[in-house]
Design a protein around this nucleic acid. Structure first.
Lengths: 214, 214
DNA sequence: TGTTGTGAAGGGCTTCACAGCG
DNA sequence: CGCTGTGAAGCCCTTCACAACA
C-alpha cells in the first residue's frame, strides 16, 4: 500500500478524493473496469490534470497508456483517506435528525459505526433508539473510555452544540461532524466538519439570482 | 438596498456569507447588537480582512470606528444572497430521506417552501406526505408550469439521480440540491449543489489519520 | 480613536504542456 | 501510440498594511 508522498495536502484535494470514490463506485456498479483520467474528470466535473495531481500526492496508481483500474483505484483512495477500516462514532442530540441518523444503515455499511447515543434531556435518557440506549451527555467521558470512539456527531439545537463539543473533546474525541447550525470552537488537534444544507440552498439562491457572476 | 459592486464573486465568499449569517443569527439570539470584524472573524474561524473583503463585494455595511449592526448586516447579507424572499422548491424521490425533508419545518421557516413531491414508484404515487400528494415524476413539467418552482431537490437512489435531474431541467428548474450519492450532468445554466455528509466523514477520517498534514 | 474599506503583496491551488513510460 | 505523472506557469484568493473616515 503506497505511502503519502507529500506533507501538505490541499483540503480541496481531500474533498475531491471523496467525489472520485463516489463516482468510481457508481462506475463499478455499472460494470466499468478501467477508466482514464479524461472521462473520469468529465464525470466528476473537474480537470483531468487535477485528478492526476490529486492522486500523485499519494502514489502512482495508474498504468501509462491504459488508465486506472477502477477497483484498484477505489482501494487506493479509500486507503489514502483512511476509510478502509472501521471508525467508531458517538452521536450527541437524539432529536428528529439524531434519530434519523441512528436509524441510517449507510453509516455501518460505510464503516462509521455509531456505538453511543447521548442527550441531556432526562425524558430521553434511557430511551432505546436503533438498539442503543440513550445516555446522559455527562457520561460521555466514561462511556468513550469503554467503547473507544474517535468521532463525535453533533445533532443538538444550535445553542447546545458548543457544550456537546466540549464534552466530546473532554472525552478524547478528535473529530466532530457538526449538524447543528452553529459554529463551535475546539482545540487545534480536534477536526471539525460542518453539514448544513441550507448553506447549499443559499448558494443556489445566490447563483440563480446572479446568473452573470458564475 | 446596495447593489453588487463586482462581476465575479468567489464561490468561497458565498459559502462564507452563509456562515456569517448563521453566526450573526446566533449572536442576535444572544442579544449582541453590534460587532466588529475581529470578533466576528474569530467566531467564524476566518481572517478579519476576509470578512471585510467578502462584504465589500456587495457594498459598505459597516460603520468605521464602530463595527457592524448585527440586524442590519443580516439583512444586507441575506439580501445579497437573494434569500430575503420565498423560493418554491420541488422534491424528487420520496424515500426515507425525502420524507424526512418534507416533514422538516425549517424549510418553510427559511423561505424554501417545498410545493411538490415526486416519485416514479407506482406504490408511492398518490400517497400523502406532509400535506403533499406524491405525483409521478413524469408529470414534473406540467406541475412546475403550475406551481412555478425554481429549485429541485433530489433524494432518489444514486442510479435514478440523473434521470430526476433531466426531468427537473426539462421542467425549467435552474437550481438543484442533490442529496443522492452520485454526480449529475446538467446544462450550464443550471446550478447544482451536492450534499453528502459521508464526504465530511471521509475528510475527518483523513485528518485524524494524518494529523501532521493539516 | 477605533474600525472599516481597499490597493498591493503574497501564497497556494489549478491548469498547462510535455517528458516518461507501459 | 496513449495515457500517466510532474515541473513550471498562471491565476485566483487570501492576507497584509494602511489610508479613510465616523
Amino acid at each position: 500500500m503506497p505511502q503519502q508522498k507529500s506533507e501538505h495536502i490541499p483540503r480541496a484535494t481531500i474533498q475531491r478524493l471523496a467525489v472520485y470514490v463516489q463516482v468510481l463506485e457508481n462506475l463499478q456498479r455499472e460494470g466499468t473496469e478501467v477508466i482514464s483520467s479524461e472521462p473520469l474528470a468529465k464525470a466528476c466535473n473537474v480537470n483531468a490534470s487535477q485528478i492526476r495531481k490529486d492522486l500523485a500526492y499519494f502514489g502512482e496508481f495508474g498504468v501509462r497508456g491504459v488508465g486506472y483500474y477502477v477497483k484498484n483505484l477505489i482501494a487506493s483512495i479509500t486507503s489514502a483517506l483512511g476509510v478502509d477500516r472501521e471508525w467508531r462514532t458517538v452521536l450527541v442530540g437524539v432529536g428528529n435528525l439524531g434519530k434519523a441518523l441512528l436509524n441510517h444503515k449507510e453509516f455501518r455499511l460505510r464503516g462509521f459505526n455509531i456505538v453511543g447515543a447521548f442527550d441531556c434531556d432526562p425524558f430521553k435518557i434511557g430511551e432505546e433508539v436503533s438498539g442503543l440506549e440513550v445516555v446522559c451527555t455527562k457520561r460521555l467521558r466514561e462511556m468513550i473510555g469503554d467503547n473507544g470512539a474517535e468521532i463525535g456527531i453533533i445533532t443538538t439545537p444550535p445553542e447546545r452544540a458548543q457544550r456537546a463539543a466540549n464534552h466530546l473533546v473532554e472525552a478524547g474525541i478528535n473529530g466532530i461532524l457538526n449538524f447543528a447550525p452553529s459554529r463551535i470552537t475546539v482545540p487545534d488537534h480536534v477536526n471539525v466538519e460542518y453539514v448544513d444544507f441550507f448553506h447549499h440552498l443559499y448558494a443556489l439562491s445566490f447563483n440563480i439570482t446572479h446568473p452573470n457572476t458564475k
